[in-house]
Each structure stands twice: as C-alpha cells, then as structure tokens.
C-alpha cells in the first residue's frame, strides 16, 4: 500500500482546491485524511468492508458539501470527522448493516464483541499504541463512547448512569490527559 507520490497541501490551499472542485484537492483530501477517517469509521462499524464503503460516502459528501464548512469555526479535520462519524452511525443503524451483521460468521462475531470490549485488536491496529489505554478507566470509557461510538454526552449520562456534569468533566480530563501525552 505504498503510494509513489502522496499529495499534501496546507489546509487553506486544500480548502480552496476543494471549493473549486480541482482534481488536486480531491487527491490531497484522500492522501491526507483517508487513513485517519477510515480509522474513526472502523472504530464505529467494526467491519473493514463496510468501513471502506462509508469512507467513500464520507469523502464524496465532503467533496459535495465543502461549502458548508466554515474555517472560522474550527479545523477542517474536525468537521470531516463529524461527517464521517455521522455517516458511520447512520450505517450502523441502517437495515443494510443489520442484514450484513446477521450474515457474519461466528469468528467475525467474536471479533466484533472483542472489539466492543476492547480486549483484543484487529491486525490493522497492531503496532499502533492505544492511546486511550493511557487514560483512567472512567475517562477511557467516556472518550471511547463519545469520540468513537458517536454517543452524545446526554446518551453517555443515561448509559453509564452518571450526572451530565460528571460526563463533561471526565471527558475534559481525558482529553487533557491525552494532550499531555502528545506534547
């Protein structure tokens, strides 16, 4: 999977190229963000094939609705992750996906369960440090649910039976923890 030439652009140049529907914009979008977006999508749908379908949908949607992105309100990637997460969650809830899940064999199913419990990892993830493991269990759970499962903080509060304020605080603490790590 080694690309001979990967195109990277500065964020403003990329945004401009995307807005003008130039080929270089699409290529840079793919080369710069497809892997990260696929990671996020895979975390939600837990199926490589479906994740790649959703990635395609996500990239096309980004391409077609780039005019909805407002650079003053945040980074492009943050916006793109939100698009990807929403499409992945839509997929997860769609009939299509449920039918697909039914057809999965037992081995796969075990993997999906393991995935949800975070006990084992797909080969794709081997070698990548699980940063979330660095967090305290209660922070870890919330970051997982919100960032990778697409839960709203209200849903997390219901799910874990924790007050809303506590959800927010733990989320903040978790992210602070990660910030320290990345510094």
């Amino acid at each position: 999977m080694i690309k001979t030439k990967k195109i990277t652009l500065e964020e403003p140049a990329l945004i401009e190229a995307l807005q003008q529907h130039k080929a270089i914009g699409a290529e840079a979008l793919y080369d710069m963000y497809s892997a990260s977006l696929l990671g996020v999508i895979f975390k939600i749908v837990a199926d490589r094939e479906i994740a790649e379908d959703v990635l395609q949908e996500t990239l096309v949607k980004i391409w077609n609705s780039i005019h909805q992105y407002d650079a003053t309100k945040g980074r492009l990637f943050t916006w793109m992750v939100n698009v990807a997460r929403n499409l992945a969650i839509d997929k997860l809830r769609s009939k299509d996906f449920r039918n697909h899940s039914k057809n999965q064999d037992i081995e796969n199913h075990v993997n999906v369960i393991d995935e949800q419990r975070n006990t084992t990892y797909k080969p794709e993830l081997l070698g990548v440090k699980d940063l979330v493991e660095k967090l305290k269990p209660e922070q870890k759970k919330i970051v997982e649910l919100v960032y990778f499962q697409g839960y709203t903080h209200v849903e997390v509060s219901d799910e874990l039976e924790i007050p809303l304020g506590t959800v927010k605080t733990r989320l903040r603490m978790g992210i602070m923890e990660l910030r320290k790590y990345f510094k």
């Binding site: 990671g39 990635l55 990345f182």
Partner: peptide, 19 residues
C-alpha cells in the same frame, strides 16, 4: 489538535484501488 492526533493514531490505510 489532540482529538486529531487521537484519530491519526488509529489510522488504517484504505485498500488499494479505493483512491
């Protein structure tokens, strides 16, 4: 930036041909 890096750490290279 932090959340972006978090996502990056889970990056999966898409299949060939997808591009």
């Amino acid at each position: 930036k932090t959340l972006g890096k978090l996502a990056d750490s889970y990056a999966i290279e898409p299949s060939e041909g997808l591009r």
